[in-house]
Simulated assay, not measured.
Amino acid sequence: MSTSNPQPEEGLQETFLTHLFELRDRLIRSIGALLVIFLGLVYWAPDIFHLFAKPLLDALPNGGKMIVTDVTGSFFVPMKVTMLVAFLIALPVIMYQMWAFIAPGLYTHEKRLVFPIVSSSYILFLIGMAFAYFIVFPTVFKFMAAYNAPLGADMATDIDKYLSFAMTTFLAFGITFEVPVVVVVLVKLGMVRIAKLKEIRPYVIVGAFIIAAIVTPPDVLSQLLLAVPLCILYELGILVARYYEPKLDPEDAEEAKP
């Protein structure tokens, strides 16, 4: 008469449930941090939106203003902007909760690699957004306002359309400024050599201008403001990756020579 032994299955089930409960708790903490910051900022939502729209407002001609074409736009658009700001402020807490969840399953060398990658990604994303806000927005809006003047057209942008444009631009420049991190990670993991990155440089430049033409407004100025930093950041990534490139074995080094 055979007897079954359900202990291994029970152990696996308990481990799975333990991880599931931990994930739930960390999601609750992340969402809680986001809501607390949002509720702390919501009183100043109109002021936050005014600061958010300042590059466009400064570029409008005398008497120009933003408009609302949706009945609920004047309420929900500032709320969305405030939620975006709250998310950016809460992002270190959210990233820490993610880190604390996956850290027990990582090796020591992986832990040493993940923290600088995550922190530098966050900082570079913020720098990309700041570049868009302080450099790209004023330049593009002033150019468009000057272009509208000879046409006799009044520049009055709907706040919801402006939010959509700004979010797309922030995302494009935030991701663009992650290029050095991507290059360093690819080199560190041995997926590509620095010599290969230099070899494909012309294709990267062409690709940068293609990406800029897709994600930016259809004017040459804004495309240059994205493509040029993308190329510069690619070169910066190559420079930093020199310190992380794994050493090749003598036999592999001989094979890698042209």
Rank of each mutant, 00 (worst) to 15 (best):
A208W: 03
L197H: 04
I200D: 12
F173M: 01
S121Q: 04
G128R: 00
V114I: 14
L126S: 12
G152Q: 05
A146T: 09
G207L: 07
V181N: 09
T139L: 02
M191T: 01
L189A: 14
L113Y: 12
I127S: 11
A130C: 09
F101R: 08
P116M: 13
F141E: 13
A149S: 15
A145V: 15
V118R: 01
A132S: 14
F115C: 03
V136R: 00
P116D: 09
S119P: 03
P180T: 07
I117Q: 07
F173N: 13
Y162L: 10
F125E: 06
T169E: 01
A103T: 15
F209M: 04
T176A: 11
F131Q: 09
Y162S: 06
I200C: 07
M129K: 01
L113N: 08
I135E: 03
S121N: 08
T139R: 07
L197R: 01
F170A: 03
F134P: 06
K161D: 15
A149I: 11
V179R: 00
F209N: 03
F134C: 04
Y122P: 09
A130Q: 09
P180E: 10
Y122A: 08
A208C: 15
Y122I: 15
D154S: 12
F177Q: 10
H109R: 10
P150T: 13
I135M: 08
T157W: 05
Y107P: 08
I175S: 02
L113H: 09
K198G: 14
V114D: 08
G152I: 09
R112L: 13
I102P: 08
T139Q: 08
E178Q: 15
V179S: 07
F131C: 05
F170W: 02
F173V: 13
L171R: 07
F173D: 04
F125G: 14
A149E: 15
K111R: 15
V140P: 00
P116H: 10
L163K: 05
V187C: 06
V184K: 04
R112I: 12
V185D: 07
P138V: 01
V206S: 11
Y162W: 03
L113A: 15
P104L: 10
R201E: 05
I135W: 00
E199S: 12
G128I: 03
M144A: 12
K188L: 05
L186P: 00
V182W: 11
F170H: 05
A153P: 06
L126H: 11
V136G: 03
L151S: 15
V204P: 00
K198A: 00
V114C: 06
S121F: 04
G152K: 05
F141Y: 11
M167G: 08
V185C: 10
V184R: 07
R193L: 02
M144R: 04
